[in-house]
Design a binder for these strands. Structure first.
Lengths: 193, 193
DNA sequence: AGTATAATATACTGATTGGTACAAAATAAT
DNA sequence: ATTATTTTGTACCAATCAGTATATTATACT
């Protein structure tokens, strides 16, 4: 009955996600977006609403992918301590490889938009809270398996790991000496006992 | 010999600092700046160069004020542990009071500009490194006075405290439950022994 | 008082911003 | 094949962007 879309919506959203992730909301123009998405301006508006709606869709896609990534990363290792170490080390490794460090899309949004838009304050907060829940579950698993001490304050530790993850991610964007980051990661991981 | 400036340069820079701090670089327009600085557009350009130069001047002013604030905060207390606790608690308290949370101007800049402009990558990194030096000195003082254990890894701990400070500051912008932040601060401070 | 100098206010520049109107093109059901 | 519907490409909109030209005003030295 109607003409069908010529581009892949999910792939276009993925490209938009990459650009917003790298440049932030304000510094990304619609022209930048259409160029990287390979679609025409009216197609963007027809498919995704407006700039803010597109940004929100991109961020939601990111948080889903990110949460899944973290979850599987923490599940695939037998040792809980080792799993967390791998998580941090992957973060560091990735950041020192790439030319322009994008950091974490969610953290970038906390800094840029959360204070000025309640929608994003809630969205980003809930993602960080969810991460702390994943961390809690992982730590509990470690206690049950006997790897971790039973009297561990799981909630406090999980939340601290989230705080540390944020701190490391942000600090990496300023390209500090590698030893700086490594040392603090080691010390933070020592809290998992 | 010449007509003299009608506005206070330092006060105007202070106002610009406040606005850049709150809104970031890209989202702040020259018109926003002149409005809040109470000066005319050509005066801004004549006095501060251009938007980026003004931003840099504002950021430099911030890092100087911030470093001084932290330094005095850590010196004015007899107990080192208590001093760090005060530092974090002041941060939290301030964030839950104000309507729109500005966070830390330097951290905001790490996230927004450091990956895209080497000038700001260096400037912000050096500030964070300087903070870790202040922390180291404070911890050393604590060891000398006998308050802290002598076998403490001062460097690693100082750097971890910087990471935690960043993490807490960013997370606060998403307004998490107060207990979340408090718990992780308590756990992090427990590293100072 | 006259002059040199710089700060001010107004008004403007071309470029870019987010967002659309509109006509052509393509599709699926009749 | 015709029709209804939606995407696409081009071209546009007013508003705003960073930055400036210009003329006026105020000052300090001669």
């Amino acid at each position: 009955m109607v003409r069908q879309r010529e581009f892949d919506k999910e792939k276009a959203l993925d490209d938009a996600m990459g650009l917003f992730w790298e440049k932030g909301y304000a510094a990304t123009s619609i022209s930048d977006l259409t160029a990287v998405m390979g679609i025409q301006r009216p197609s963007l508006y027809a498919t995704f609403g407006d700039k803010e709606k597109l940004f929100e869709a991109a961020l939601r896609k990111y948080t889903n992918l990110h949460a899944t990534h973290i979850r599987t990363k923490l599940q695939n290792t037998s040792s809980v301590k080792e799993a967390f170490r791998n998580l941090f080390e992957e973060l560091i490794e990735k950041e020192y490889k790439t030319k322009v460090s994008k950091g974490c899309f969610c953290i970038n949004t906390i800094v840029e938009l959360a204070p000025h838009d309640e929608k994003f304050e809630i969205l980003t907060r809930e993602h960080e809270m969810y991460l702390s829940v994943i961390f809690q579950e992982t730590l509990l698993k470690g206690i049950k398996s006997g790897e971790l001490e039973g009297n561990l304050d799981v909630k406090a530790l999980a939340q601290t790991l989230v705080v540390a993850l944020i701190g490391i991610t942000v600090l990496l964007k300023s390209h500090p000496e590698r030893s700086f980051v490594d040392k603090s990661v080691t010390l933070i991981l020592s809290l998992i006992r």
